[in-house]
Nucleic acid binder design. Structure first.
Lengths: 258, 258
DNA sequence: TTACCATAAATTGTCTGAGTTATATGAATT
DNA sequence: AATTCATATAACTCAGACAATTTATGGTAA
């Protein structure tokens, strides 16, 4: 009895942040252990009974957590074999949860560079599409986000959210459902950029004019200008993180572009 | 007793394809109903007891299925409210399962166009990156895939797999973990292209030389040529599907590029 | 020795029924 | 009108049993 209660209390304490259910917290904990490399691809997790015993939770809760991880490509479980960590190539790297678990701790330099690389590929094109397809509401959302960035300080929670919302509205305005589903990835990078900048490299320059330029181009239905302005914006954001940490001039593919 | 057995037998029959477990088949069935629009965003699924009763499965299996769907952003469940279908913007459109469920039936024209739009954005850049970073093994994998496309007929299962593997190897060679995780999306599109072509528009031209051009550029470490060749390849693939179905000349963002 | 087949063992998978917790709703209170 | 509180409802968690599946093992025949 008492042991049951204490276990429940402990789990509850963990769960209190973000109103996650028990299976959610277990999934998150295991997920972080996997993406951070504590459990490596090929490793076999403890059997259901052992694992749930150790975590002091029921098999039900543990199993549902494993289902979540499996749904995100992190593990695969088979009878008589167990639940094994999948090779990284099978992970759903752009899954919002996987991304947030990756960014739970200071992420790998290479991974961060890769994320910015993808952003530099997709976001400028998304901005160009937005210039052609944006609705008035989406344009308004961008404007509101810009105001939010202006009224709040950049490092504040509200400022960061406004920045995220600007990029999110841009992706929405692209009118492409698959591009929209990259929002979480962009958001994670934006969020991390702000946090990192605040910690290591505060206030290098005012980013609002750079955002403004993208907005103006989209408003003017000028895809070419929107593309250029957004590329510039993402490159500046990257400068605030990757290069300031490791000044290696990596080969890029932008040289292949006109 | 007998009802239990018949239910188990039925479930088993459904599960036999692809060695899915019961919770997996339920997740797939519900997932298809959602992405196909039979259940709409905002709809509340039947409660656990009702739903599991109807499907003749235990609440355990049903709940695990719901966990899978929730992990992919399709539904969200809360006490006292129920499990409701999430708005499409929250769906993980690039999740391999979600994609395969979308392509289970003939997909929406717009969605297919969107997928090709993303491919045209990402794959050429991936090819350019591959030209800079490819390892010998990855180059070898591309060559093997080309051979596979040559020896087998394009419409055959083996031919389709070879085509997919070519694109997959290209994304791997980009050296970007996030780009690699787009493999399933590309694969789905490639697979659908072949199937569609075979059904509606057989053998318009030999696609192997077009693939060869990309390969040669990557081998020669020429990112610019790789970019161009891959863009051409994807555009040809799109011609075999979207345009042949609905010849509406959609606005594109390529005009914004140099 | 090798190949094949039946059997056993280990692990996930499924089922049932009970009790718990969170939350929307509406009533009572200030 | 706003706030607090009770209640009903759904998901959530638990425990223990049994089933299904896959791998490993050992024995038998060629």
């Amino acid at each position: 009895m008492s042991s049951k209660k204490s276990a429940a209390a402990r789990a509850n304490a963990r769960a209190r942040r973000k109103s996650l259910r028990l299976h959610g917290t277990i999934a998150r904990d295991l997920g972080v252990l996997i993406v951070s490399g504590r459990y490596k691809p090929g490793d076999i997790l403890n059997g259901e009974i052992d694992a749930s015993d150790r975590l002091q939770v029921s098999r039900t809760a543990y199993r549902e957590a494993v289902r979540i991880l499996a749904a995100k490509g992190l593990v695969e479980s088979r009878p008589k074999v167990g639940t094994r960590v999948s090779p990284q190539a099978r992970w759903h790297m752009l899954d919002p949860d996987v991304l947030s678990w990756i960014f739970e701790f200071e992420p790998d330099d290479t991974l961060l560079a890769n994320l910015f690389e993808l952003r530099k590929i997709v976001e400028p094109e998304a901005a160009a599409l937005a210039a052609l397809r944006r609705s008035d509401e989406e344009l308004e959302a961008m404007e509101k986000a810009l105001e939010g960035m202006a009224t709040h300080t950049l490092a504040s929670e509200a400022g960061r959210l406004a920045d995220q919302e600007f990029h999110s509205a841009m992706l929405r305005a692209s009118g492409n459902a698959f591009i929209v589903s990259l929002t979480s990835g962009v958001g994670a990078a934006v969020s991390w950029t702000t946090i990192f900048k605040q910690r290591h490299n505060p206030l290098r320059r005012d980013p609002i004019p750079d955002h403004q330029k993208v907005y103006e181009a989209v408003k003017a239905s000028d895809p070419k200008a929107a593309h250029a302005a957004m590329l510039n914006l993402v490159e500046l954001a990257q400068l605030d993180t990757v290069n300031s940490r490791k000044p290696k001039p990596a080969k890029t593919a932008t040289s292949a572009r006109g």
